[in-house]
Design a protein around this nucleic acid. Sequence first.
DNA 1: CGGAAATTTGAGACGAATCAATAGCTGTGG
DNA 2: CCACAGCTATTGATTCGTCTCAAATTTCCG
Lengths: 239, 239
Amino acid sequence: MTRPAVRIVGDSAPLRRLSALTRLDPTARDALAAAIAEQRAISAQRELIREGAEIARPMLLVQGWAARARILPDGRRQFMSFVLPGDLIGECRQPRPIASSSVVTLTDTTICTPPPGAHFPTLAEAYAISGAVEEAYLLAHITRLGRMSAQERIADLFLELRERLDLAGLTNGDTYALPVTQETLADALGLTSVHVNRMLQELRRQGDLRWQQGQVQLLHSDRLADRLGRMPVKVSAAD
Amino acid sequence: MTRPAVRIVGDSAPLRRLSALTRLDPTARDALAAAIAEQRAISAQRELIREGAEIARPMLLVQGWAARARILPDGRRQFMSFVLPGDLIGECRQPRPIASSSVVTLTDTTICTPPPGAHFPTLAEAYAISGAVEEAYLLAHITRLGRMSAQERIADLFLELRERLDLAGLTNGDTYALPVTQETLADALGLTSVHVNRMLQELRRQGDLRWQQGQVQLLHSDRLADRLGRMPVKVSAAD
DNA sequence: CGGAAATTTGAGACGAATCAATAGCTGTGG
DNA sequence: CCACAGCTATTGATTCGTCTCAAATTTCCG
């Protein structure tokens, strides 16, 4: 008896990511796989969660990209973080949580409902670690926006995305798919799309970066990481 | 038998803040009061937690101000958030947590060890809500840094501080103590101290702000909040 | 193939940084 | 009580990075 053919290419992103965060027991893995099997499609530019509304139930992003966003009264937009495959949305400890930001899909996506942590202890731990990792990335984003130049912000974000996508099994060496527009990057990095464009060109000219057909390649990621003081995010000594 | 005289002036900041976040039962309040009674003094400019180190045990800030900080290789500094009386430091769900940022005292402070949430369910809930509130403020900070002008950043931060200090009973109407230098504000807001100084003057000239003898007064906070699209932070529908 | 979206380019304006100097304040020791 | 050191706040002149506005070009997609 062989496993189904589809499994040969590897587990889905959420399964890879959450097992990488902590060791999942077989029960948890099965529950997770079952939940993922129930995934449903959501098209791009949909609002998954509205800021200020009560979060009905948490979600788990299976495929595609989303972002946490806030809009100012005059229309300025800020993306606070990218939500990548395997990331949880609205997983909270407290009862009846209110969303502190909107979450919008950036691409066509599929999502599912994560198995309740209360029933699967190792999953609960994975959710906890996932939350801590997410907070670490928020801190990194604050440092980017507060103290880095435009070019550094882009390089630093690209390094972060590589690190995160790698955990979900979505990189190929130093190359990964970046399915967003320069305008979206600008709204994440606190810049204008015009300036993002110019700085991307400079990074390419310097030989640090390639970005063709939606695939990003980081040429000297070690050197970049050094210069920016980036350390791989680690939130638990138990790993 | 009357309560000790010192209680007449009101509860300590942590007690006020955590009871405001959720209803604490008497057992929890007593445990918290006992913990606070054990507070110890820490002078200014001390590192309470070092980034990358394992967090031995959580702390609760009783008096004074601290900040979460990150330093870039070339010395640029970013404060990611201010830690105010009643705020928790290093309260995490996962075992053996690694600090994702340093925490440094900005003033002389006193801290204590919070009672373990596992023993006091209502305290556990307060910690959970506190964590969610903290994340909401991180998101607000990202928006400030990414999409607001220098003047807006200052005004928005001052409004946030008022909101947070108010919860801990540390405001007096629209006035509160702000025990930090302009340099510190600059490192929080991603600006230089020179520019912070100029923008503060402009806010004063416009009649939006007073800041004398360490006391900040916000003159038109409603108008400011409107302009900046600020909403009071709320993370649970159960309040 | 056509039209919309995304990227690229250019010129000029503006906000914030930088560099440097001065003034005020606070505590300290002679 | 004054002199001094060391912060902190303030001011000025200039530079630099990023934004703004506008237009052209390329890419994507139906």
